[in-house]
Design a protein around this nucleic acid. Sequence first.
RNA 1: CGGAGCGUAGCGCAGCCUGGUAGCGCAUCUGCUUUGGGAGCAGAGGGUCGCAGGUUCAAAUCCUGCCGCUCCGACCA
Length: 439
Amino acid sequence: MRLSRFFLPVLKETPSEAQIVSHRLMLRAGMIRQEAAGIYAWLPLGFRVLKKIEQIVREEMDRAGAIEMLMPTLQLADLWRESGRYDAYGPEMLRITDRHDRELLYGPTNEEMITEVFRASVRSYKDLPKNLYHIQWKFRDEQRPRFGVMRGREFLMKDAYSFDIDEAAARHSYNQMFVAYLRTFGRMGLKAIPMRAETGPIGGDLSHEFIVLAETGESGVFCDKRVLELPIPGEDVDYEADLSPIIDQWTSLYAATEDVHEQGRYESETSEGDRLQTRGIEVGQVFYFGDKYSKPMKAMIAGPDGVERPAQMGSYGVGVSRLLGAIIEASHDENGIIWPDSVAPFGVGIINLKPGDEAVDAACAKAHDALEKAGKEPLLDDTDNRAGGKFATMDLIGLPWQLVIGPKGVAEGVVELKRRATGERQTVPLEDALKVIGA
RNA sequence: CGGAGCGUAGCGCAGCCUGGUAGCGCAUCUGCUUUGGGAGCAGAGGGUCGCAGGUUCAAAUCCUGCCGCUCCGACCA
């Protein structure tokens, strides 16, 4: 991609409404634009990152055996009356009336709808287990949206729902999602800690929140800091096998949000030097809630004994759009964002220091084409801005690699390669630089 | 939902108290110079001052209502 053809409205100054660093940087880097309180347009740069994150989530869900589908954003109120949540959910639910005076709502979550989908076609234990998910926009009419995409009213969420014949099987489904989440967040360069959590309005009796530690987070957390060093399960993890050793490893060390924190237990289970009390950003949550929805909504399954019983369910959410904020909170410096390679909007930024100079233009085109062919998604700054501005913009948008090509270097047959995360630079022939990046 | 505050050019702000031709910086456009870490000079364009009423000879400024947005707190992927 050539910057001259892209749409990247960067801001030199920070808009006054943005308080926390991720929100400021997303606005300044031209990733999002606020259209209303808690509602954002995703500009091209932000959208590219959103898609990268969504894809990682999708790959790990698929790996764990979940099946992707897509449910609508609008739901019938009657469906929510079946579960009793139409009245219980409160003003956070956006309610809509259509031209026939039918009551609809913009979905804040999908337990009711997935239960309806499931019960329409599944009757036998032989069809279980099933885990269905989608990645869809949700709407929650927050009293106080803030922190940019971290607490928006409209947000992109991955929500998965598992159906099992009994509690033991449901726990296995829960464990699969637990492990998938460890992998998902790990791939994004995040240290997300599973913490015992309250179940909230979704309901249920077993739940963990996955929390990225950050001073600007909304949840207070208490944990044993050794949890930060635990290994993340590899790509080859066997999801069919018993996953409880992994779960036990991650849940035996103390980690709890302030809602369920028990000071006495904390002090007895952790040594003083290992205690970490800080704040965090919730990026995912897993619930086991049994028959909370399947029973009132009559999602019944016949077991081997021929007896029908309500399906045992769990639900598993990941805040896909929120993750952008969380990643930036965890990875930035005073000059801008530092994207982990896995979610960067472009893999490498090429800076043409002298557009119009035939030799420099040729070297840039060569680098650009080679990187593009190698799938490294280069962004070539071919604008006629000044060098300083180009460096500042490139640091701001945080691409993992910067390839600086100017007339002096080209005359000597070299370019400058900079790693955004460390600031390390090396001056080498173009071919060598491309090799380092992987083209 | 309680409390506080803000809406003036794309962004950041001044002007309002004490009513009298709507300003500054950045950005944008033109020209010249400059050219490896957000350049200099000269010029130019861009605003129903959130909306609607009211007071007044005259309203960005005073009054009333509405809308939007932000912050603190309580609640939540």
